[in-house]
Design a protein around this nucleic acid. Structure first.
Lengths: 344, 344
DNA sequence: GTGAAAGCGCTAACAG
DNA sequence: CTGTTAGCGCTTTCAC
C-alpha cells in the first residue's frame, strides 16, 4: 500500500490539512513545521494518490479550450483525433474540454474564438495559431491578464508568452528530405524544388532546410530550379508546371515538392513516364499521398505526428493546471517520420 | 458536469448499488430492471468517473508483474524506461508493478521468475519471452489455471494463450530496409547480407523480409552472398568477414547487416575506404549505431520503439484488469522507424 | 432483489 | 497558524 497523507500527518504529529498546506506551500503553516513535514514526506516517499486528488478537486470543474484552424485539411483531422482522445481521457477525470474550429485561417476569427473561450471560463488554451502580431498580443494578454496558460501546436508564435510549443522542427524535416535525396541520386544529378505560395510559414523553413542540407552533404548535386505554384489548391497548375520542368530538364534526377501541390506533379511524372526515373520526395502522410507512395511515384514522404500534436498539448495543460506539473520543455518537437512504401 | 451513477439511479427509481450491479452484470438485479437501467445509462451518456472508481477500488491492491530479459542491451534499457514511466503512472492510481529482470536469456530463469511473480500475487504479467515450448506451457498454465493475464512484448510465443503481443513486425521491418536499399542503388547492383547467428528469431524474419522485398521491387539487383558470423558479440570476426567480402566483390553496391555485428562491418568499410560508396543498412537505434549513421558509414537505420514496448503492455494490463477494457488488437505492432543522419 | 451505509485519500471551507 | 469536517463518485459489504 502506498503511503498516505494521514501517515505523514501521524508521523509529524499534525493533521492531514496541515500536511496538505505544507506540501503545497499554501501558507498558514509555521515554517519550521512545514519543513519538518516536507522532510518526513520525502523520507517516507509520499506521492499523493491521483485518483483521490482528482475526486476531491472534481467540483472545481477545470476547463481547457482548444482552437483548431484549417479544418478542411486531412492533417487537421488527424490532429482532431488526438484532441478527441485526450478529451475523452481527461473528461473521465472531470476536466472539460471546449473545442472550437475554423475552416481556414483567419486572424479575426482566431481572436474572436479565443475571446469566446475566455468567456466560457477556460484556464488553459491549446491553439493552432497564425504567426501574426495581433494573435501574439492576444496570447500575451490571455497569459498575463487573464491567467490563462496557452500552448501553441503545429505552428508557433515567435516571442509570445505561450508556455510551450508542440510541433515539428520544419528546418530539420527539410534536411531529412535532403538526406533521403542525397542517398537516392548518383553523382552530379540535377534537382528541382517546387513550392506552393508561402502562406504557410512551415514551407520556407522546410525548403531552406532541404537546400542547406543538400548543399552540405552533396555539393555535386545541382539545384537547377525553384518553381512556384500560384494557386496552392490547383493541382492542374502544378501539373502544368511540372510538365514544363520535365521537358526543360531531361536529365532531372529528383524533385522536392511542397505537399499541397504534389498530386499534380505525380500526374505530370506519370504522363511523361518519368515517375520511376525521377525521385520524388514530399511531406504529409495524407491518404492520397500514401497511395502515390505505394505505387512508387512518390519515393519518400516525410510525416509529422498530427495525432500527437492534438493529444499532447491537452495533456500538457492538464498536467499544468490539474497536477501542477510544469511542462518539461518549451519546445516539444514531434518526431520526423520517414515513410517508404513498406513501413506505411 | 458529467452524469453520475446517482443521476442514473434517480432516473430509474432505484439505488446506486442497483445501478452498479446492473451495469456491471453482477447479477442480483431483476433482469427487466437491469435492462431499463442500461438503457437509461446509455441515453444519458453515463461514463463512470475513473478517479472515483480507482479510489473505491484502491483496497483491492492490483499487482502487475513485468519480466524483462537481456538487460545488458541498450535496447532493453530503453524498454525499461517505458516500463518505469508506466509504473509511475499506474502507481499513482494504486496499482503495484513488480519488475523482474534477467541478464541474458534463459528458459529456467524465465520460468522461475514467472513462478515468483505468481507467488507475490500478480493478476497480470508482461514479459519478453523466449519462444520455447516450456515457456509456452507456463504461459498457458498461468492464463488458464491461475487466471493471470499475460502480454508478450518484443518477441512473441507462437500459439500460446497470451492475450496480446506488443512489438515489431520483423518481416515488414526487413522489407522496409529493402525499400531503402532499392532507392539507393543503380541498376544491376550487387548486394550482400551479413547476419549473426540465428539465436534471435527476429533476425531470420527480417532477413527474409529484406530478401523478398528486394526481389519483389528490384529484380535487377543481385543478392550475391549471405554471410554468417559465428560469434555475435565479436566485432573482430564480422570485420574480418566484411573485409573479405569487400575484396571478393569489388563492385558491391549495398550491404544489409544484422545489428549485433554491424560495428565490425563499419570498421572494415572505413579501412577499405568504401564507407561512402557501399550503402549500409542495419537495425536498432543504439548510440554506437547512431554515431555511424551521423558519420555516414551507415546510411539508414531501422528502429523499433523500445519505449513503447515497455510502456504499452503495462497499460494494456492496467486497462484490462482495472478498467475491465479488453485490448483492441491481438497484435499491437509498434511502428517501423527509419532514421537517416538528419532525423535522429 | 434491493437499499443503506461505510469508506477509499484528498482538498477546501469553516472553526477555533 | 492549526484542526475538524464534509464531501467528491464509486464499490462493496451487510441488512432487509
Amino acid at each position: 500500500m502506498a503511503v498516505t497523507s494521514q501517515q505523514i500527518a501521524d508521523a509529524a504529529g499534525v493533521s492531514r490539512a496541515t500536511v496538505d498546506r505544507a506540501l503545497k506551500d499554501r501558507g498558514r503553516v509555521r515554517p519550521e513545521v512545514a519543513e519538518r513535514i516536507k522532510k518526513i514526506a520525502k523520507e517516507m516517499g509520499y506521492h499523493p494518490n491521483q485518483a483521490a486528488r482528482m475526486l476531491a478537486l472534481s467540483k472545481q470543474h477545470f476547463k481547457i479550450g482548444v482552437l483548431l484552424s484549417s479544418m478542411q485539411t486531412p492533417f487537421m483531422q488527424e490532429v482532431l483525433k488526438g484532441v478527441r482522445d485526450a478529451k475523452e481521457e481527461v473528461e473521465k477525470k472531470g476536466v472539460i474540454i471546449e473545442i472550437r474550429t475554423t475552416y481556414g485561417k483567419d486572424v479575426h476569427q482566431t481572436i474572436a474564438a479565443l475571446d469566446e473561450l475566455k468567456q466560457v471560463g477556460v484556464r488553459g488554451i491549446a491553439l493552432v495559431p497564425t504567426d501574426d502580431e495581433k494573435v501574439k498580443k492576444k496570447i500575451n494578454q490571455l497569459t498575463e491578464e487573464d491567467n490563462i496558460s496557452v500552448v501553441t501546436l503545429n505552428a508557433d508564435v515567435s516571442k509570445s508568452k505561450r508556455i510551450c510549443f508542440v510541433g515539428q522542427d520544419n528546418n530539420k524535416a527539410g534536411r531529412t528530405a535532403a538526406g533521403l535525396m542525397a542517398e537516392c541520386l548518383p553523382a552530379n544529378s540535377q534537382v528541382c524544388v517546387i513550392g506552393g505560395l508561402e502562406l504557410n510559414p512551415a514551407i520556407p523553413s522546410r525548403t531552406n532546410g532541404f537546400i542547406e542540407g543538400l548543399r552540405g552533404i552533396r555539393p555535386d548535386i545541382e539545384i537547377v530550379d525553384s518553381l512556384y505554384v500560384t494557386n496552392e489548391n490547383d493541382n492542374k497548375e502544378s501539373e502544368k508546371i511540372a510538365l514544363k520542368m520535365i521537358e526543360k530538364y531531361p536529365d532531372l534526377g529528383g524533385v522536392y515538392v511542397s505537399p499541397p501541390v504534389v498530386l499534380g506533379v505525380c500526374r505530370a511524372m506519370r504522363k511523361k513516364r518519368v515517375d520511376k526515373k525521377i525521385k520524388l520526395i514530399s511531406h504529409d502522410l495524407l491518404q492520397e499521398n500514401l497511395k502515390q507512395l505505394e505505387e512508387g511515384t512518390i519515393n519518400f514522404l516525410i510525416g509529422q505526428e498530427g495525432y500527437m500534436q492534438g493529444y499532447e498539448p491537452i495533456m500538457i495543460l492538464f498536467r499544468l493546471l490539474v497536477e501542477e506539473r510544469n511542462p518539461e520543455k518549451e519546445f516539444e518537437y514531434t518526431s520526423i517520420i520517414i515513410k517508404n512504401r513498406f513501413n506505411i
